[in-house]
């Protein structure tokens, strides 16, 4: 069964009296352990699609399913619970909390629970991304690549089966970007985590199982998409 499934999803905004169709009938599904790249020019609706998949935004029309369950019309409360359980996020600008250590940043999603195992899981994850010796470092003491590794560990601390990455290599140089993508691949293979990455970075396609192209809110035929 697909981890996540979008069925004929539309997202329509009303931007200053003008109707903007960000997503126009998207059908999309990701299988467990699959690494999918979503590519497309700016304004093609990539981020909107990621927000809908990540339960940060609800579609105007259509159906979203997680593990076959319809999650289209959840309340904010239910979406929050579902995000925490099923989905991890990695952002272009890392979005680590500067006042917290690497370890505390990884523990952040569990901070408000009385989850006594989270510390152990967070340490494990940081060791797996090669930061076992930097647990107490603050984000400003870490390089860009290290910050993104902390962000990946944070995304995985609740053991989600789906990892969503918004331009994960966008703020990194090419070599560091490659390392991050290798990190993704590792978790995909070892933990069977499905990954959806929205990106402009052409080197991403070398690591993914498939690439979908989004143009003007529509899914184009699968395959390599080249920047015009």
């Amino acid at each position: 069964m697909s981890i996540i499934e979008l069925e004929d999803v539309w997202k329509v905004y009303d931007a200053g009296g003008e109707r903007v169709e960000a997503l126009r009938g998207i059908d999309f599904a990701v299988e467990p352990g699959e690494f999918v790249a979503v590519m497309g020019p700016s304004g093609s609706g990539k981020s909107t699609m990621l927000n809908v998949i990540g339960l940060l935004d609800s579609p105007t029309e259509g159906t979203v399913r997680i593990d076959g369950r319809d999650v289209t019309d959840l309340t904010d409360e239910e979406m929050t619970v579902e995000r925490k359980r099923s989905i991890g996020f990695v952002f272009q600008s890392f979005y680590l909390i500067p006042s917290l250590s690497a370890l505390e940043n990884v523990e952040l999603p569990t901070l408000f629970d009385h989850d006594h195992d989270s510390r152990g899981r967070a340490v494990d994850l940081l060791e797996r991304v090669g930061l076992g010796d930097r647990l107490e470092h603050r984000p400003d003491q870490l390089s860009g690549g290290q910050k993104q590794r902390v962000a990946i560990a944070r995304a995985l601390v609740n053991g989600p089966r789906l990892l969503l990455a918004d331009e994960p290599t966008g703020n990194l140089d090419r070599a560091t970007g490659k390392e991050i993508l290798e990190e993704f691949q590792l978790f995909k293979e070892e933990d069977d985590v499905a990954i959806v990455a929205v990106t402009h970075d052409p080197q991403v396609s070398r690591f993914v199982d498939r690439t979908v192209n989004l143009i003007d809110g529509r899914m184009e035929s699968e395959g390599a998409w080249a920047d015009a």
Binding site: V81, R83, K84, S93, I97, L108, F112
Partner: peptide, 16 residues
């Protein structure tokens, strides 16, 4: 703002 957005994204509730 963004940090709080991240907190909400990773599953922290409004009341929290």
């Amino acid at each position: 703002r963004q940090e709080i957005g991240v907190l909400r994204a990773v599953g922290v509730h409004r009341q929290q």
